[in-house]
Design a protein around this nucleic acid. Structure first.
Lengths: 342, 342
DNA sequence: TTGTACGCGTTATCAT
DNA sequence: ATGATAACGCGTACAA
């Protein structure tokens, strides 16, 4: 009833432990016949190498970690992680690595989280998400000697490789789309300036306006939450000259903003155009359907996992090309109409 | 630069490996002074026991698994997992257990996933979610000898303990709320009948109607997705006698349904009342705000983790009481008005 | 190909 | 009562 070990296989096949190990890892130095026989016996006995023994022996954890630092309720609304994790998994499982997940409420608790992962030797590397400007984590991880891959737009040259869909093309696409519809007063509801994806999306919005030869519209910093999206929208609509279009840094804020506008009797898109970012499942089923930016999140996960495994094995980086984020035009954006508001 | 081992500590403290181990695990048989000295030295050297070595030695993985079988895009819209995982983590980390996550696209791939977890000895137990009626997984896990805790409403007596907020009170609360508002033609957009939480919510709806002395309203089976929620709503509204209120099995379908109704010029809640389930972050920011059911998901995670660890250690179950799911009344539900539709 | 040391704690057996 | 010693768990890798 107890699990078979490598010794059982060796005995049954009439060879040594070492031979079995060689056969399993398909390493040279075994007669083809022997190799086959060993594998067949292993199959019959139903032996799979013990991950624990292997991990101890090779001094590797055979696992990587993902530490998510966010209040759980904010997490629930984020469509990123599930898909991202699915992408990670698809690569990791092929390389016999497991994904170890930790969710901590805030960045304070993130540090000890990494420490423990390292101290106990639980993981061989980690993914770092939600990077903020001047984030201390890359340096901390370097100090701990733990390989890492940063998820998100690369902000300057870093210690670690960054993997992620560049969000600029998507946001710029949104602005261009609105400009083409005749809008010239285009606002932005941004993510926190301190977070790189908040930052980069805002910069993309700003750059796009510049390129279109338009004046910078109003920009309000929010925090990706529905609450903050609604509040930001309220501020924008209360301006002396409210914008005719708003580019949101994510779908959740866009949805909250759209609802707020509607509750004030403002019609979307007749009176106000709105774009989101993420292409959440619900986006296509709102009233009106939401124009938003879609990116290959699963692909990002795959790329990140691939890169981290390479980093761990000290292999040269594969060049992985991800399709750029693209605008999905729906009904929340429409032509600008030079009418008077009530 | 290499990690300190138990030997380093033993040498520095002038004792044997065994003594250090005893000190660490606070086991009897050491003079108080010795114990303290050892711990102090360990602290100074910065030694933490290697998880790998310990796992091999105690023949335990010191980790538990969560296998999520869902297409990633459906996952993204589900607010359950992030909070649930946060709850799991808070308990697991205190007991030095890690959470190993796997996301597979469908149930076909779930089976091999468990096999690998077991064969490699990666985990000591698993959480089973999204249980469906006559689910083969509990039996499979029993056969594999892998302790499990089922997440969700207990459907009959099972091999494994079930942990989860009972959804019946919440759904019944929604129906009662609608009845109190004067509605008598209350429909249900259900989750898949084959899934226990789809099933149990539908039963709760049905029971509540019965208790209120009302006729069973129309019920349409959907699959928790926005798409299916919209389709089901379309069917309901096309009935000769459309319902005046719809109870949805989750927020996502409710949102899609609400949008669909609005796109047809039906006012919510004036012409149609709507309730959801989950209390998603966006629910409070929709137009109108969504009446829905809220439950303690983090608490569920904590309870599940506690129970699984007990199961693994063959300890008697702690009795954990979770607050029942409760209705959060907002603006998508209102009094029934006996008016004619256009 | 085989034999064996090794990785690193845990625990049962012994000695004082 | 204290603490040392050695076997053990299970693959991997190198010398023979």
């Amino acid at each position: 009833m107890t699990r078979p070990t490598i010794n059982d296989v060796a005995r049954a096949a009439g060879v040594s432990k070492g031979a079995v190990s060689f056969a399993l890892n398909s390493r040279p130095g075994l007669a083809p016949g022997t190799r086959e026989r060993i594998l067949k016996v292993a199959q019959e006995i139903g032996w799979t190498p013990s991950f624990r023994a292997r991990a101890l022996s090779v001094s590797r954890a055979l696992a990587v970690g993902l530490v998510i630092a966010r209040p759980p309720d904010t997490l629930g609304a984020d469509p990123f992680f599930p898909s991202f994790i699915a992408g990670l998994e698809s690569v990791l499982s092929e390389h016999d690595h497991a994904l170890l997940l930790q969710v901590v409420a805030d960045h304070e608790r993130e540090r000890p989280s990494y420490r423990r992962l390292v101290d106990e030797g639980r993981v061989d590397g980690v993914f770092v998400t939600d990077l903020f400007v001047d984030d201390p984590r890359p340096a901390l991880l370097a100090e701990l000697g733990l390989p890492a891959v940063i998820i998100g737009p690369a902000l300057g040259k870093g210690i670690w490789p960054a993997v992620g869909v560049d969000d600029a093309p998507g946001i710029m696409g949104a602005v261009e789309h609105l400009v083409a519809l005749g809008h010239s007063h285009i606002a932005h509801v941004a993510g926190p300036h301190g977070m790189v994806h908040g930052h980069s999306r805002q910069r993309a919005w700003s750059t796009a306006l510049l390129r279109a030869g338009l004046a910078q519209g109003p920009c309000i910093e929010a925090d990706f939450s529905a609450e903050s999206g609604a509040a930001a929208t309220r501020q924008l609509l209360d301006l002396a000259e409210p914008p005719t279009a708003i580019v949101y840094a994510n779908d959740l804020m866009a949805m909250a903003g759209m609802s707020l506008a509607q509750s004030r009797g403002i019609d979307v898109p007749t009176d106000l155009s709105i774009t989101g970012y993420d292409d959440t499942e619900i986006a296509a089923h709102l009233q009106p359907t939401l124009t938003t930016v879609s990116s290959d999140v699963i692909g990002t996960g795959r790329a990140a996992a691939t890169r981290l495994l390479e980093l761990i094995d000290k292999q040269p980086p594969t060049d992985i090309v991800l399709p750029p984020a693209r605008l999905v035009v729906r009904n929340s954006s429409g032509p600008w109409r030079p009418t008077h508001r009530p």
